[in-house]
Write a protein that binds this DNA or RNA. Sequence first.
DNA 1: AAAATGTGAGAAAACAGTTACCTAATTTAA
DNA 2: TTAAATTAGGTAACTGTTTTCTCACATTTT
Lengths: 337, 337
Amino acid sequence: MAITIKDVAKLANTSTATVSKVMNNSYSISEATTERVKKAMEELNYHPNATARKFAKQATRTIIFLSEISKNSGYANPQLFEIMSGLENVLSKKGYTLIVKSISSSETAGYIENAIESKVCDGFVIHASVISRELDELIFRKEIPHIVIGTPNFVNHLCWIDIDNRFAGEIAATHLFKKGYQHIAFIGGTEEDNISNHRLQGVQRVFEQHELIFDNLLLRRGSSDTDSGYSSAKELLSSGRLDSIICANNYIAYGCMLALKEENVNVPNEVGVITFDDYPFSKILKPQLTVVGIDVFDVGEQAGKYILQKIRKPNTYMQSYITVPELIERKSTDKTK
Amino acid sequence: MAITIKDVAKLANTSTATVSKVMNNSYSISEATTERVKKAMEELNYHPNATARKFAKQATRTIIFLSEISKNSGYANPQLFEIMSGLENVLSKKGYTLIVKSISSSETAGYIENAIESKVCDGFVIHASVISRELDELIFRKEIPHIVIGTPNFVNHLCWIDIDNRFAGEIAATHLFKKGYQHIAFIGGTEEDNISNHRLQGVQRVFEQHELIFDNLLLRRGSSDTDSGYSSAKELLSSGRLDSIICANNYIAYGCMLALKEENVNVPNEVGVITFDDYPFSKILKPQLTVVGIDVFDVGEQAGKYILQKIRKPNTYMQSYITVPELIERKSTDKTK
DNA sequence: AAAATGTGAGAAAACAGTTACCTAATTTAA
DNA sequence: TTAAATTAGGTAACTGTTTTCTCACATTTT
């Protein structure tokens, strides 16, 4: 049998109430009694039962992180885990526990409803890829403490945190102009890919600011992979006058670099290349890629801070929060004017 | 106030014991009563309190995954998350919950002792990087259900699961021989890096089998990164006769490929390149890398199965379990004889 | 010296389930 | 027909901690 609070109370010659009060250092307990109790706990090597505590306190101090994780997620989606790390980091510091649960968007609402009713956790951090209309409604109706990571497509009530991808696009374009590039191309993912869309919008906004027009002949949309980056770059090179390429992500950028090398185009002097997200990748290419870096660990941390705040003060209101990207200058745009 | 088992019992006109029995479908309860109870649960939208259940049952159905995760882990250590995904996958299926906790090796023993005494979880999956001698002793003394992922350096009592890196080395060397390569070089990480050591041992074993001697002039040890791969490859090229290189990991391989390209060495015809672990990376290089692939998701799954088994039947004994690597043939060794 | 105030600590009632044990009713076996 | 066995379902104890309420006693104020 495990040692319980009763054993401690008996040894310390007090009541369980007093022992509990000492543990929670709430209420006024005299110095002497406190010492006696602590000594007894020490002597018996007492560890309070965590489940019983949660039960009595009616609070779980637990957050559930929901996203779809399956074979290859670790490789394909390193940002997801970077976010999770940031989240764990702040929760841990505040004595909270992180449960990780893989789920598909069709199951999310059901799972969350059950988990909150069953008091499994105090709140949820939900990856945008697993939200649903049903969830939006549920969360509103039951006032469930939550935060979505990423921009949900149809948001009425969900609150979320994301990267400012438009601003990231602005940073990229501004940097190229500053470096003296003038004919900027853009290679993005599919038309449905909002990340690409927002990054492109940011680029276009900079053109407007400079009272220039973004040349749509220098815009390519494909899929978000290396092959697409490769073929888009080849097309661009053969078709038009350009001196720089903004790639919507690392994979595209890599394909693009391969094409440029094949065509013997010098990077950064003939064509500058810039992309987004600082994958390990971008540091090891030759030349190293200039990147608009996004601190996704920080996104996880912010999400953690927010959900804790929401639990402590349920009337806290926030619909969205945006983290700020930052330029990481490397060789691929280091043009000697 | 939340709906409890009492409310259900009252509505169904039975005792709480009966409701509980229906929920756990244990004991004999008549069809009619079962129906009545289920209808009542439905009607009240009853969700049993998870904490109270755990408390009454004295079992947590929870596993804690311990490793060191910090900023950049998601990028630098995708395998870690691949393992976590596999683990979550099997635990989830069996109704278990996965808690993720970042920790450093100096804290592990203390944390585990407290968690097990406090009945926070039923068992632990521990990454080899956070074990300690103290932990080994603790786990033995208290018979703590656990499994270590990776080979611990000093193991007396810990049980662990790992990849058969020696066998992976054998696969690599065998493949090269089969393809007609004869002068095989090896680029590894530091002398302390056991993964490199084991892979090299496997390679050497194949040489022995063929009654050949591995030429130590074609062995290079450095760090495990791209730069090291690059400089080692350059050295090898200038110094000796070789027709193939085994790189201990993807980063080294990439550096190696850069060096080969710079020296205008044709891959795979002049020099074949093979490495380990199937990072996304290896598919997008030109030429694509042949790789001894290791299914780390499977490692996570195996670990999950083992820990569940251990909890169900504590007298299950296993000291180590090894997963089998597999050759993924791509262009970088596709020599036309 | 009496009244008001403050402080330390215990008794007991939560918290919401599970389950060992018991009884009554029904079925089966002899 | 009776004894034994089986089945259905209720009673109440139990899981380990927290917390409200109360009271005794000590201290301060009037």
